[in-house]
Nucleic acid binder design. Sequence first.
DNA 1: CTTATGTTTGTTAACGCTCACTAACAAATA
DNA 2: TATTTGTTAGTGAGCGTTAACAAACATAAG
Lengths: 193, 193
Amino acid sequence: MARLTTEERQKIIIDEAINIIHEGGYESLSIRELAKRVKISEPAIYRHFLNKEDIVLGILSRISDFEQHLSESINKKKTPKEKLNEFICFHFRFLEKNKNMTSVIFAEDIFMQSSILKEKLMRILSHRQKLIFEIINEVKTKNKIKDVDPVELSKIIIGFIRMIVLEWKLSGFSFSLEEKGNSIANTFGKLIF
Amino acid sequence: MARLTTEERQKIIIDEAINIIHEGGYESLSIRELAKRVKISEPAIYRHFLNKEDIVLGILSRISDFEQHLSESINKKKTPKEKLNEFICFHFRFLEKNKNMTSVIFAEDIFMQSSILKEKLMRILSHRQKLIFEIINEVKTKNKIKDVDPVELSKIIIGFIRMIVLEWKLSGFSFSLEEKGNSIANTFGKLIF
DNA sequence: CTTATGTTTGTTAACGCTCACTAACAAATA
DNA sequence: TATTTGTTAGTGAGCGTTAACAAACATAAG
């Protein structure tokens, strides 16, 4: 097989690992299948990752990257209302372009097998929580808002996004997420302002 | 081993299967481990279930049972406000008493491996959706309610319940779900009325 | 009440298969 | 020449499942 740098190969391997989970669930992610798809031998996988856990850790890094981009995109917006809108729509824009990520981005169970994975997952989750909480808090101080606990409101928003994405996935991606995004932002507007 | 009727043995096997998933994720559910815990031989498992899929189907039946009891409990309530409250609190009361069910009750991924499982899952999910939608619709006709799409509102409520349960699980069940239930019902009251 | 008969629920031993992973070696690149 | 990225061949362990047999139980005739 053509020789690639570790960095290049790692990217391809993680991409394909995500695809495998997307198509057949975590159960079907095996080194054998992974090697077959990447078109290198199984031992070659181990040139670029310590073990299977290390590959799953790589998937977590992708989620971490998403979270990073989300954060940057939100910081470009000025008003808290715009930020809240961007929080929702960024998720949907990203997932519409990266459907395969729907199977891992909210799949906490996959990352509960080892303490290393669990720890990294927890850091990502608390970052996610913090991000939305700060937006809600900003909304609360600058706008007239219903007297609802910002922590609970954060969870309602994330929970709703998760539900829509789950429904979208179960429906075989049969509707437009981006359109839904605007409708959802609108609904929250009605509810909380 | 002591002889039991198929019915008795089936119940024990499904119980233990749920426990295994609760403790180690679906990955760790194997016939070998299951037989060890139930304290019968592996082939004895096959006296009571056709194959592994059949066992997972049994887990789905448990979820179906829960949904049934939820439905009955709600129908005992009279006003739509009480029904909405019961929808939320029944979930939390049940899971507080059956912590091991937290790992399967919202774990759609487990049941996506075969068309048989997927079909049964879909029926459960649409029943769930229908149940909460009817409550919301009843609230809408009888009470003064914000002009928000009942379908979206249903998803917000289910999504929030899911988030709280996920958080509870990730925290190692470190807080009281039932207390949270009342707080949540209160929050929804403020938001939608 | 005992004994024969069929059914159900268990056992031991083994099947072929896939799993994650490694040792030893080869070719490409620096 | 040394390092990196690939290969082939094979490890032991666990997987779901089955064949063959044994003991417990239910039923009904002697």
